[in-house]
Nucleic acid binder design. Structure first.
Lengths: 208, 208
DNA sequence: TGTCATCTTGAACGATTGTTCAAGAAAAGT
DNA sequence: ACTTTTCTTGAACAATCGTTCAAGATGACA
C-alpha cells in the first residue's frame, strides 16, 4: 500500500477518501485535530491534493457537513414498500439502530453542531437541513395519521426531534440503553397519539 | 481602561476575568477562537498573565468546564425552603428559564461537550458531572415521590435528562418555544407519574 | 507517437499558535 | 527604610497552521 494507483477496490476516488478522512478525524479529535496535513496523512495522499479537491479548509468541512445532513435526511425518507404507519414506526426506531448510535457518528454530529454554532456559514446549512428533517418527519406523521392538520404534524415532529436530539447527545455521555428504549417509545406515543381536543391547546396534561 | 489596577468594582481579580473571557470566546467562536492571545485581549491583560494563572491552555479549558458543570449542578440542588414536590417542579422548569436558554450558555455547553468528546481528560470531568446531575435529579424525585425505589428514580432521572439535553441542543437550532414548553411538561409527567406495575417493566405503554 | 487535460507531489511562504522567560511593577512583610 | 513575595508585561522561541505553486506523473485522445 504505497504508490500504486489502483490497489484494491476502494483505492480509487481519492476525493471521497479525503472527505472520509476528514470526517474520521473530526469525529475522533474534534476540529482541532482536522488539519490539512492530518487529513492528507489519514487519507494517504499528499498535502497538495487536499487543496486540489477542496479549495479551502472551510469547503472541506462544508462538504462533510452536507454529507452528514444528507445521511440524516435518509432517516425520514418515505419508503413506498411499507404501509404509512409502518414507515413512521421504522423511522422512529431507526434512531436507536446500531449504525446510528456509534460513537463515530454521534461524535461527528456533535462536532458539526458545534462548528455550526461558531460559524454563520455552517449554521445556515445546518438550519436548512434541520428544517428538511422536521418536514420529512412531519410528512411521515401526516401520512400515517390523515386526520391531523399539517401544523399539528409539524408540532409533533418538533417534539419528537427534541427527544431524538436528546438521545443522540445523551448516548455520548453513556446513558444506559434502557433509557434510550423508553425514549424511543415516547417518540412513538407522540407520533401515534390520537388527535387532541383543540380547545385544550396549552401543553398541560392533567392526568397521566 | 488601560493601566490602572483598580478601576471600577470589577477590575480586580484578573484571574476570573481571564476565565470569563475564555468562556465568552468559547461560546461565541468555538475552540478555534480561543487562543491565549485572544483570551488575553478579551480580558484586557497581557499574554503572559494567562499562562501565569493557568499553566496550560488545557487547564484553562478545564477550569471553564468545571465552572459550567458547577453551575449545572445548582439546577438540581435541594432547596429546604420549599416542599419536595415543589422543589422538583421548580427544578424541571428552570431548564426553560431565560438565563438558561441564552445562546451564550447553550453554545458554551455544546462546545464543552464537543471538547469532552475529543479529549479523554475533559471526558472524565464531564462524565462525573453528568453522574452527579442525574443523582441530584433522582434525589429530588425520591423526595417528592417517597413510594419509588431508588433505581426507579434513577431511571426516571435518566429519561428526563434525555429530554432536557434535547431541549438544550434543539434550542440552538431554533425550535419554537411552544415545543420547549411541551417538552417541559413531558419531563414533569415522567417525574410525577405514579409508581408503575413492576411486572410490566418493558417500556411499552399501550394507551395514551 | 505526440498533445493535451487531469491528477498528484512536496517544498516553500507568511501567519498564527502555545509556551517560556527575563525584567519590571505592586504589594506585603519586616 | 529595605527585603521578599506576588503580580504583570511583552519580546522571543520553536512548532504548526492554511495556502500557493512549480514540477512531474498519469491517462485520454489524436
Amino acid at each position: 500500500m504505497g504508490t500504486s494507483t489502483v490497489n484494491n477496490g476502494e483505492q480509487v476516488d481519492r476525493q471521497s477518501r479525503i472527505l472520509e478522512a476528514a470526517m474520521d478525524l473530526l469525529s475522533r479529535h474534534g476540529i482541532a485535530g482536522v488539519s490539512m496535513r492530518a487529513v492528507a496523512r489519514e487519507a494517504g495522499v499528499a498535502l497538495g491534493l487536499v487543496n486540489y479537491y477542496y479549495d479551502d479548509k472551510t469547503s472541506l468541512i462544508r462538504a462533510a457537513l452536507r454529507r452528514v445532513d444528507e445521511h440524516d435526511l435518509l432517516l425520514v425518507a418515505p419508503d413506498p414498500s411499507a404501509a404509512p404507519d409502518e414507515q413512521l414506526r421504522k423511522a422512529l426506531r431507526r434512531i436507536a439502530g446500531a449504525d446510528l448510535l456509534t460513537t463515530r457518528y454521534l461524535s461527528l454530529r456533535l462536532h458539526l453542531w458545534a462548528l455550526a454554532q461558531a460559524d454563520e456559514d455552517y449554521a445556515q446549512i445546518n438550519a436548512a437541513a434541520f428544517d428538511r428533517y422536521i418536514d420529512g418527519l412531519a410528512s411521515l406523521i401526516a401520512n400515517a395519521q390523515p386526520g391531523l392538520s399539517w401544523e399539528e404534524c409539524r408540532a409533533r415532529a418538533a417534539d419528537i426531534v427534541v427527544i431524538q436530539n436528546g438521545m443522540w447527545l445523551t448516548s455520548l455521555l453513556g446513558v444506559d440503553r434502557e433509557s434510550i428504549k423508553r425514549s424511543i417509545s415516547r417518540t412513538e406515543e407522540i407520533a401515534f397519539a390520537p388527535p387532541r381536543d383543540n380547545a385544550n391547546q396549552d401543553a398541560k396534561l392533567h392526568a397521566y
